[in-house]
Design a protein around this nucleic acid. Structure first.
Lengths: 342, 342
DNA sequence: GTGAAAGCGCTAACAA
DNA sequence: TTGTTAGCGCTTTCAC
């Protein structure tokens, strides 16, 4: 078997406890001894068994991450942010994908709870009561969701939606559609709320085009409603939906820049790769990941922490292609502005 | 603290070992006792501490997954495949992203080895000697790589490259470029080898356009070489590179369908989302993930397994848009075939 | 500053 | 079939 703390102790001529201390609390052991132990440990290729350590300390050195769908490029970005910080703090990350199944979330929390020091729930779809239950199993941090006093990292949806509406309104759009995500999505509700407020403030009409899966296919399905909605611009739940919608519009021969403008949310890499590029609301995804784990680690170190308000991350509208509405639909002149094909 | 096996034992009026058996080897315990124990355990919300169990059984119930870059959509697909199977077998998955840093791989293997029953190395960039070392730390399965007798899952690069070359040659292309990935990538070497063989067999000229990062940006950078290479078609290391190249070609005013054909590899979701869609070589990614974990679990159950030959997964060329070369460059007629813009 | 001993939660001999 | 005992690898009192 592998080399244990006893092997090191024996080889270094000290007791296991001394080895343990030399590694965990270097300060309280004699420098000479410490050096020797370190050297021997290194030489033998000793690696502490974290499970054994966890058994006694109650700390596993692992954190869990539960998210709806790794296939949505939005999430890998967050995972990368989390991994970076986790690695620095010497934590390992369990990743679990629910495949957009809200009922799977709580079960995953339960089965993960014992093996981790904390769990980051990314865009959880579960009900508030379940969220509260989840938080009883182990420390939890939320991303893209707020619920009671559970520590959370979210984007500033109100401000983000305002940016999008103001931008489109400024171009002359007066009737703007919103393709919503799943009903169970907190972001859907928040964005809807933000859009309504912003639309009212900008005196434009917001047309709610229904709920769709937060995927490319979901976006394609939303094309019907978009067409009969009589809108000159559409805001999609996220970039994937926006791209699906665009694809379907193109399939139907709708000339996208001139007839309809589409704006996404998330700024996934892909949104800049298509041609023409998609105008989208950037969310600092890796930063959200980093913030969430910072919050969690802070919480673990100081259980009193985390009761503060949720962190709100700023968003930024990336205008890549936008167009004024066609003269047919509104009275606005179709100016020299570029087209939001995508 | 949480409810332990002793709590259950006490409440059920049996010994801890009976509880343990009732849960792990239900067959060898009296049905009546078993029922009672089960009920009490369930009622108390007992969840076995896997770390403690692992300490004694030597099995953690975890598996590790190390991959170069979650931001490349190719990898999340594999992760999803792995997760599915892992979940069924009641395994948790540690995911670690190296950020395309080959030197980080071995370190991750070492730090993960103790906490997992096995590791899946996805597209590892490390040297064969390091790979051999990695395999000494814990059971390892390779994806997109072969090395000695280490169990592996790989695509059939030779056949895949033949499909691509035959397709392009059939359209009349006589001078075909290849934008290679990182030198440290095994796939780069294999694909190069396959391409050379296929090109020779089809009597077309293969122009090696250099090595680039396996990313969108890498693809963009490859545009220079592509332009001076005098090729009518380009095969990219993967879809991301293909998309980057296409974007750069478009930026330079190169009319992509008529002047250059581009073919990708991987069939990431994205390749079907762009317009026009990218012709690409499909790799069964989720299946690769599932196969790799099947291999690993089989290996864990039966240490004699895994010495067999590597699994080779079939690939399939998805022709979405392709074009014959422009008449200027070769003598081939530019037929009625469609254009490989993307 | 260091060692001996106890025990984290669990399973695997070995008895009964 | 079940209980008792020992111990996985580690940390942490408590003596010294």
């Amino acid at each position: 078997m592998a080399v244990t703390i006893r092997d090191v102790a024996k080889a270094a001529g000290v007791s296991p406890s001394t080895v343990s201390r030399a590694l965990s609390l270097p300060d309280i052991v004699d420098p000479t001894t410490r050096e020797r132990v370190m050297k021997v440990a290194d030489h033998l290729g000793y690696r502490p068994n974290r499970a054994a350590r966890g058994l006694i300390t109650g700390r596993t050195g692992n954190i869990g991450l539960i998210l709806p769908d790794l296939a949505n490029p939005f999430f890998p970005s967050i995972v990368k942010g989390i991994q970076q910080q986790a690695h620095i703090a010497d934590y390992q990350v369990f990743v679990a994908d629910t495949d957009e199944d809200p009922t799977a979330e709580l079960g995953l929390v339960r089965s993960l709870a014992k093996q981790v020091d904390g769990i980051i729930l990314c865009s959880p779809r579960m009900k508030p009561s379940e969220l509260r239950e989840a938080a009883t199993y182990c420390p939890v941090v939320l991303v893209n969701r707020k619920a009671g006093s559970i520590p959370a990292v979210a984007m500033d949806n109100a401000d983000g939606m305002r940016q999008v509406i103001d931008h489109l309104a400024g171009l002359g759009h007066r009737r703007i559609g919103f393709v919503a995500g799943p009903r169970s999505s907190w972001s859907t509700k928040e964005r809807l709320r933000g859009l309504r407020a912003a639309a009212a403030a900008a005196a434009v009409e917001l047309v709610e085009l229904g709920h769709f899966a937060p995927t490319f296919d979901g976006g394609m399905e939303s094309v019907e409603g978009t067409l009969i909605g009589g809108v000159t611009a559409v805001i999609a739940y996220n970039d994937l939906v926006a791209l699906g919608l665009l694809s379907a519009l193109r399939d139907r021969g709708i000339d996208v820049p001139s007839q309809v403008s589409v704006v996404g949310i998330d700024n996934i890499q892909l949104s800049a790769m298509v041609h023409p590029a998609l105008t989208t609301l950037d969310i600092p995804k890796e930063k959200a990941g980093r913030t969430s784990i910072d919050l969690l680690l802070h919480l673990l170190g100081d259980p009193a922490a985390g009761t503060g308000p949720a962190r709100e991350l700023p968003t930024e509208l990336l205008v890549r292609h936008t167009t004024a509405p066609a003269p047919t639909t509104t009275s606005e002149p179709s100016g020299r502005r570029r087209a939001s094909r995508l």
